[in-house]
Design a protein around this nucleic acid. Structure first.
Length: 265
DNA sequence: AGTCACCTGATT
DNA sequence: AATCAGGTGACT
């Protein structure tokens, strides 16, 4: 279930369990798992060690020795985890990196939209070059948000989920941030007032500050869903926690946007 | 910026 | 049987 907080949780877990591990083998069970590359190409990772894990927006970057890196994207339903025995993986696992200690680093994705690619560090920079700044980084300031919004011709919800200005927000947390800032998702990003920009900047930070630890908790023990409580997402028809009126849903760019028609104007 | 395509699985 | 799903890239 990956937007920025979930990907961050995955990366933190991998850092503790797989940093320094050596890749001893690679197998893809579906061609799609390495799209647009071939499995043979990704096999170029075999024999290399994992130097560190990074997150770039919703991408997981696995730096290997020798100046190369794996780029993993989980899309809608993927997960990247370490399992105790590389041979004992679930049916939904689409690709396995066998580690030299017998464990497996696996891309698990029932929907098969996620993929893993191998690039040189240079190629990767090229590829991820268009990705925007991270809302958890110090570069994410109200001034940055104001300047980026001014350049956009899109409704603010589409602007927030476009990964080019800002990388990491998706359908859930964009809606949650807009609700907290009391901003109408359909409003043109370029038309937001200074105050609204400031409020939005603050609520993006607040939403992520709540969502990251919640995601870490739920990934720690997968059975127990101590996930975040959404204020508007997936709550169509339920009362707004602020005004009590029913939460609404509209479709923007083919995706549901949940919002309070009264609070967000 | 909207629509479809990529896929499977859960829900109506 | 039809619709929907946390993402995104390729069209139009």
């Amino acid at each position: 279930m990956p937007e920025l907080p979930e990907v961050e949780a995955v990366v933190r877990k991998l850092r503790r369990s797989a940093t320094g591990a050596r890749i001893a083998g690679f197998q893809a069970f579906r061609a799609r798992a390495t799209h647009p590359q071939t499995a043979e190409h990704v096999e170029g990772s075999v024999g290399r060690s994992i130097v560190r894990f990074e997150r770039r927006g919703k991408h997981i970057v696995v730096r290997l020795d020798g100046g190369v890196a794996l780029d993993v994207h989980l899309k809608m339903s993927g997960n990247l985890t370490v399992i105790p025995d590389a041979r004992m993986h679930a049916l939904t696992v689409r690709a396995v990196f066998a580690l030299s200690d017998g464990r497996g680093l696996v891309l698990d994705d029932p929907r098969m939209l996620g993929h893993v690619n191998l690039f040189t560090n240079q190629e990767l920079e090229q590829r991820l070059g268009s990705i925007g700044i991270d809302p958890l980084s110090p570069e994410f300031t109200p001034e940055f948000l104001a300047a980026a919004a001014k350049r956009s011709a899109k409704p603010v919800k589409i602007f927030l989920t476009d990964q080019k200005p800002l990388a990491g927000l998706g359908n859930i947390y964009a809606a949650e941030a807009l609700f907290r800032a009391r901003v109408d998702p359909a409003r043109q990003a370029a038309r937001l007032s200074k105050q609204k920009i400031r409020a939005l900047h603050e609520s993006i930070g607040a939403v992520l500050a709540e969502a990251v630890p919640a995601a870490v908790r739920s990934y720690r023990n997968p059975g127990n869903h101590e996930g975040m409580h959404y204020r508007v997402y997936d709550r169509e028809g339920e009362p707004c926690i602020t005004c009590g009126r029913p939460i609404g849903r509209m479709v923007q760019a083919g995706r549901s946007t949940y919002f309070c028609p009264r609070c967000q104007k």
